[in-house]
Design a protein around this nucleic acid. Structure first.
Lengths: 228, 228
DNA sequence: TTTTGTGAACTAGTTCACAGCT
DNA sequence: AGCTGTGAACTAGTTCACAAAA
């Protein structure tokens, strides 16, 4: 009976082509983290209302976000945490092992290689790549090996590499991205400032630390003005 | 004559209370970086159209963004790069020295402390703070000193600290943020996953690396489906 | 003529409110 | 009774298109 319900729900799942917003995807990831915590705490079910209160969000928003992918709730009850957790992991593609490489074995690259948050949810930091001879052959504190950037294409051919993280200085970012693209990697998380060009079939996501800091600066300047 | 025009423009500047969107602020920071590059390259003026082409953005968008703060362009000409650069720096509050502290002297905190992008545009990494005795008294490779987190309040009283960067493990994030808030710091850049609570007069900006990676994972899973 | 600044039109995203299950 | 799923209403953000200025 439960099994049949599950099949029904999965069948109802909407087509991928519906074009889901990036904001929705980001929130699914947030919901998943919350569900993980609730699951560990032993909670069985949660309503969209209760979940919304966790991050001062609107309950309808959560329901709409989930509705992009099917019907996961039970009216009068809410969502079964274990079930929704499993469904979200599947939607986000976390039900398989994902191999990540980090381009640039400088301070930032090395820190990201050993960042515990990346290890969770099935991500594996497979390797670091750098152009500097003195770094090649060594490894991060956490044991991630550092290879020559020239070896990326070879490694990518030998084993599947899913995501590349760009942690090289700004002037090298575009050439390094080009190497990543040629190696056939289809998803890039970029930490270097400035715009990068990638082909249409490559998903690029950028985290711009300078922009983040400068926007905080704006609110500081603005705040003073308002209060003054 | 030029001086008079400048005064006119600044007088026209709209009130801060207009409530400018965060997206606009982020873009201003992007425009500024572009203007810096153009200025170094010796370019004198640029039209919103030409600027828009740099990051496949709409020209009207740029003009609207700027219009939130006044009239900076010259019809038939475009924008004088040096002038607009100076105006944007002022709007973003970058015309003064900003002091940044980093909470957490782990891999990530140490990497951020020496990150060259932060040094630009007037940001100074004043100190790292950690709770681990064996770290206190040492410094980052780049020479940023590591202090005891208990000393934050004292330091904040002695010298102005503008922005705190949270680079501690997730379970410590909220308590550390509380310490930062008590020390009177009004802007926080958070790298730890999960929601944090701050009072209304503190501006919190979060960069969630797990969410970024998981959203890339979604597009990988989705892409396969579409192509398959 | 060129290009800004901006109202109007459009598009995307959020919230409301309620029918319909359980 | 309680809570989901969703159309309708609303709000925010983007793009168009053109009058006005240099």
């Amino acid at each position: 009976m439960v099994a049949l319900n599950l099949v029904n729900r999965l069948n109802k799942r909407k087509q991928a082509s519906d074009q889901v917003s990036e904001l929705t995807i980001n929130r699914l990831s947030v919901y998943l983290r919350c569900l993980n915590e609730l699951d560990v705490a032993g909670t069985q079910t949660i309503s969209s209302q209760a979940l919304a209160e966790q991050f001062r969000l609107n309950a309808a928003q959560i329901r709409k976000d989930l509705a992009c992918f099917g019907e996961f709730g039970v009216r009068g009850v809410g969502y079964y945490i274990k079930e929704l957790r499993r469904d979200l992991r599947q939607i986000l593609g976390l039900d398989r092992h994902l191999r990540v490489v980090i381009m640039g074995a400088g301070n930032l690259g090395l820190a990201l290689a050993d960042y515990p948050g990346f290890r969770q949810e099935g991500f594996e930091i497979a390797a670091l790549f750098d152009a500097a001879n003195e770094k090649i052959g060594h490894e991060s504190r956490g044991g991630v090996p550092i290879y020559d950037i020239k070896a990326l294409k070879r490694l990518a051919r030998r084993e599947r590499l899913d995501i590349a993280v760009i942690a090289v200085p700004a002037p090298h970012a575009q050439p390094v991205v080009d190497v990543v693209v040629v190696a056939g990697i289809k998803a890039i998380l970029n930490f270097s400032p400035g715009a990068l060009k990638v082909p249409g079939d490559v998903k690029l996501k950028s985290v711009d630390l300078t922009v983040s800091l400068e926007s905080l600066s704006f609110y500081l300047a603005r705040g003073k003005e308002t209060r003054g």
